[in-house]
Write a protein that binds this DNA or RNA. Structure first.
Length: 303
DNA sequence: CGTGGCCCCTGTGGGC
DNA sequence: TGCCCACAGGGGCCAC
């Protein structure tokens, strides 16, 4: 579900609701959406196949007793930082959401609620609940002992998409023979770009999604980076793309889908040239592009 | 080593 | 109406 603009929208809406609140209760309904430092490395799906039951999660590791001092984001990852130096890293996957509806307000959905936090304001009054919900469970939560652990995790990712430069893209992907779209989806190259914004960014930059990353010129990398930054910034201002069920922490939809020029429009007319948009599979993901505005490249062709 | 293929899940919408 | 299939905004692991 969420890419950078959606996660940033969740971050902002969550920050306004939980910053400065103290966690007075934690309920873990599904242990297997949580990874602690003691758990074996890897994704949540792999852990679920383990036959031995993992250890109970210490509620303090999920910030019980902590005051939330920061709501942070890098790429598509979200983090809550507590005053104890502990941190909780949340990845939303395809269908994850974090909701904090406020005291008395009802949640939009009561199923697939995997982790629930009870919050109190500084003056002791109830601030309602914060919940992690994720029907497909491709997302999950990492507990981290301190801010250093969070910094190290985020250092493994590429630069955040809102600030990425052409030089950074070229350094991280310029030597690769794979399709540029695959490179943009690789979170070690740039953090925050997913299937929608990869297609939209490449359309805006006039680059074919299957162009070999290694074939791009410096000027083209600059163009891709500039278009991505602009696109992601515009999408943040519109509070993210709501296609079906994405909502911010208050349950509100975003309007960034109106920025979409190619995503979901295969076979329709290109907004720029009027020709029919092509669609196919690139990097195992449905991909839409304009064959005229994003011309195919041939070995030896000059740009 | 880099890379493509496969897998992890549930829900939904379209065609029959 | 119901069934079945394809597909969905993500990413980790494992053969090559």
């Amino acid at each position: 579900m969420p890419e950078l603009p959606e996660v940033e929208t969740v971050r902002r809406s969550l920050e306004s609701r939980v910053l400065g609140c103290t966690v007075s209760g934690v309920i873990v309904r599904r242990r297997d959406v949580i990874a602690t430092p003691d758990d074996p490395p890897g994704g949540f799906g792999r852990q679920r196949r383990l036959t031995r039951a993992p250890k109970r999660v210490e509620k303090a590791d999920l910030l019980l007793g902590d005051t939330i001092e920061g709501v942070l984001r890098h790429g598509k990852q979200l983090a809550l930082a507590g005053n104890s130096e502990r941190a909780v890293l949340i990845h939303l996957g395809m269908t994850g959401e974090v909701m904090a509806p406020g005291p008395g307000a009802r949640l939009r959905a009561a199923d697939h609620l995997h982790v629930l936090w009870t919050l109190r304001r500084g003056d002791g009054a109830s601030a309602g609940r914060m919940v992690f919900r994720d029907p497909r469970r491709f997302g999950g939560i990492w507990t981290l002992p301190d801010r250093g652990a969070l910094d190290r995790r985020w250092a493994e990712l590429g630069p955040d998409g809102l600030a990425v430069t052409g030089q950074q893209l070229r350094e991280r992907a310029g030597g690769s023979a794979r399709a540029i779209k695959a490179s943009l989806l690789d979170q070690r190259v740039v953090a925050g770009v997913g299937n929608i914004y990869a297609d939209e960014g490449l359309f805006r930059a006039g680059i074919h999604p299957e162009a070999r990353a290694g074939d791009l010129t410096s000027q083209e990398w600059d163009r891709v980076a500039r278009e991505l930054r602009t696109l992601l910034c515009e999408a943040v201002e519109l509070r993210g793309s709501t296609l079906r069920d994405y909502r911010d922490a208050g349950g509100f939809a975003g309007d960034a889908a109106r920025l979409h020029r190619v995503y979901g429009r295969g076979g329709e007319a290109c907004v720029s040239c009027g020709n029919s948009l092509a669609s196919g599979t690139v990097a195992q993901r449905t991909t839409v592009w304009c064959p005229l505005c994003q011309p195919e490249r041939y070995p030896g062709s000059v740009d």
